[in-house]
């Protein structure tokens, strides 16, 4: 699948922002006044930047509001609705802490649950697709949730929570990669099943249907850069999990937190790039690609 920078930025940034807001909502930290303003500002800012980036991916961004209508069937619509609800429901808690120094735990808790639900909805957009076997697996929601929880813990400076979440993130990432490598074969799809010509023999593309590129090939048969997948997996793992864990272990205060946060974000961007670039769509079989 095409690793569109807008979707990579969207999922990584909004995941981080929603993770941070989850901890703030649950009251893992209760900043007041200016520090509450900065922390909630960061959470809202990251989430909204991510949502804005995702709108860039649309063919007709001016109609984006319509995406709130089909929450009964569509995970993409659910994500939009849940994200808006999460930010709204958390607002009294955030405002209470910023302006009056008082938490509104009920709004905080409800908002935090909605933040988690939003992350889950985002991951289900991918996990629901039978056409992309690598995504169609429980490790997809697992990675999205653990990434948000690990990133959020770093940003809320709850070192002990971060040290707890980072190994889980490392584990789910590794499982997503290792189990994911088998998913396409497990789906059982091949040029023979795609064309239904299997009973006659082995199928090979003789001539493509068009000489130039097209939307399908660009969007769903992205094969560039998979050559470096192993190196990128190692880099993503080191930046997203290992370095932050070491930094927080050595310098649990601000000197460790800030580089840890940047390293984690960099690693997650690499992991998200791989999430898309490595995923093969069954449609590619018609073009003799995977």
């Amino acid at each position: 699948m095409h690793p569109a920078p807008s979707i990579i930025a969207f999922t990584a940034l909004s995941g981080l922002g929603l993770g941070l807001l989850t901890y703030l909502g649950f009251g893992a930290v209760t900043p007041r006044g200016w520090s509450a303003f900065l922390w909630f500002g960061l959470g809202y800012g990251l989430t909204l930047t991510g949502l804005a980036a995702s709108a860039l991916h649309l063919g007709r961004p001016e109609r984006a509001l319509r995406a709130f209508s089909q929450w009964r069937t569509s995970w993409l619509s659910r994500e939009a609705v849940l994200a808006a609800l999460a930010l709204l429901v958390l607002a009294p808690h955030a405002a209470g802490l910023v302006f009056w120094g008082r938490a509104v735990p009920l709004a905080g808790m409800a908002g935090a649950v909605l933040c988690l639900a939003t992350i889950l909805a985002t991951s289900m957009i991918y996990a629901q697709l039978r056409t992309v076997p690598r995504w169609n697996h429980w490790t997809t929601p697992a990675v999205f949730l653990t990434a948000a929880l690990a990133g959020g813990a770093i940003l809320t400076a709850r070192v002990e929570l971060a040290e707890l979440a980072l190994p889980w993130l490392a584990l789910t990432l590794a499982l997503h990669w290792i189990l994911g490598d088998r998913q396409f074969a497990r789906s059982g799809q091949s040029p023979e099943t795609a064309t239904g010509l299997g009973p006659l023999g082995r199928v090979r593309q003789l001539e493509p249907p068009h000489t130039g590129p097209n939307y399908l090939l660009r969007e769903m048969a992205y094969v560039v850069g998979r050559r470096h997948r192993m190196k990128l997996r190692v880099i993503a793992m080191i930046l997203a999990c290992l370095i932050p864990a070491l930094l927080l272990g050595l310098w649990p205060g601000w000197p460790g937190l800030i580089p840890a946060a940047f390293s984690h974000l960099g690693g997650m961007l690499a992991a998200r790039w791989l999430f898309f670039a490595e995923a093969e769509h069954v449609m590619g079989l018609y073009y003799g690609r995977r």
């Binding site: 063919g59 007709r60 984006a64 995406a67 992309v132």
Partner: peptide, 27 residues
């Protein structure tokens, strides 16, 4: 008139039967 051109339906189709028009931005 209602399509926002998100492309998710094209991802969900196993057969590559949907193409997002590059100029109009709809499926």
């Amino acid at each position: 008139d209602a399509c926002i051109g998100c492309g998710l339906c094209a991802w969900a189709c196993p057969y590559g039967a949907r193409e997002l028009d590059a100029l109009v931005g709809v499926m």
